[in-house]
Design a protein around this nucleic acid. Structure first.
Length: 285
DNA sequence: CTCGACTCCTGTTAGC
DNA sequence: TGCTAACAGGAGTCGA
């Protein structure tokens, strides 16, 4: 399957500023890509120790002992990303899978590539460090997650994820996403069909594409599928360039009573796919 | 296989 | 001022 683990580097590949620039965002595909770039600096380093103080944070049977056994004295060969999953390939073939939930931040050598998350705290509370790798050069990589919705696992099932949001083609979108009776937005959030779309990317994309989030996913015609594919690609590209999923045009008005920036209509607020959904009844259909 | 409902986590915030 | 309850979304599970 196509598992593009890195986004083509283009003019959007600005150096990540460590402080102050980022607004409140959410760990969606865009943010995990920013994390991945900040973690490239650990490639080639050797893991000296593993800190896994929170058993709840370890998934699929992993324990502090199994993680320590698998990772200690191993060199990091590569850092990849599929959707919202960050993967560290170790020299012995072990893969470490890192997930960030809605409040997890990645801190590499003491620096967070994203300072502030929408529903998290920007305080730097060491007690919120749920997992860490210490390297031979004295640096470290840690996940700081106040609400513990992220997690770490050994050898994650990469095949369980759909095509990555940055590189999915219109054909893949048509075959796996725009089918069936479920709401279009719920489909976009289904990581097994398309990996990396979270609530903010979904709302912004559908708003820009003029598509109603509540429409049956299978009801789109060819033109609409192509428009969705184009818009999705554009949105993640712009979000990455601008620094996160919170930089959209819809984001400032994703509040009760907010008005559509395009035509001024009051936005509709609904729950779709279990998530708060804002859309414009005027131009999204 | 599909799909909706439910559950988990806890810092922040609105409201009394 | 101090308290409580509602709220947020990613991911997993369960039953129809």
């Amino acid at each position: 399957m196509s598992c593009p683990d890195r986004v083509p580097v283009d003019e959007t590949n600005d150096a990540v500023e460590p402080h102050g620039r980022w607004g409140s965002t959410l760990p969606e595909g865009v943010e995990i890509e920013i994390y991945r770039r900040s973690a490239e600096t650990v490639v080639g380093r050797t893991i000296m120790s593993v800190e896994a103080p929170d058993p709840w944070f370890l998934k699929h049977g992993a324990t502090a002992a199994t993680l320590t056994d698998a990772a200690t004295h191993q060199q990091v060969d590569e850092v990849r990303r599929i959707g919202k999953l960050l993967i560290l390939d170790l020299a012995n073939g072990v893969r470490l899978g890192l997930r960030f939930g809605m409040t997890g931040r990645l801190i590499v050598d003491g620096t967070a590539s994203i300072d502030s998350l929408e529903y998290s705290s920007s305080r730097n509370e060491p007690a919120w460090d749920r997992f860490a790798l210490r390297f031979d050069n004295g640096g470290d990589l840690r996940i700081r997650d106040p609400r513990r919705l992220g997690g770490v696992e050994l050898d994650p099932d990469e095949d369980a994820l759909g095509a990555d949001v940055f590189t999915i083609t219109p054909t893949q979108l048509r075959r796996r996403v725009t089918i069936g009776d479920v709401a279009l937005k719920a489909r976009l959030l289904d990581q097994s069909r398309i990996a990396g779309v979270g609530n903010l990317i979904a709302d912004e994309t559908l708003w820009r594409a003029g598509l109603d989030p509540g429409r049956r996913a299978g009801s789109l015609d060819d033109d609409e599928v192509n428009r969705l594919a184009r818009t999705l690609r554009s949105v993640v590209s712009v979000f990455l360039r601008d620094g996160g999923s919170h930089t959209g045009l819809l984001q400032p008005v994703r509040i009760r009573g907010g008005s559509c920036p395009k035509d001024g209509r009051e936005l509709q607020r609904r729950q779709i796919g279990g998530r708060t959904t804002f859309s414009c009844p005027q131009h999204q259909s």
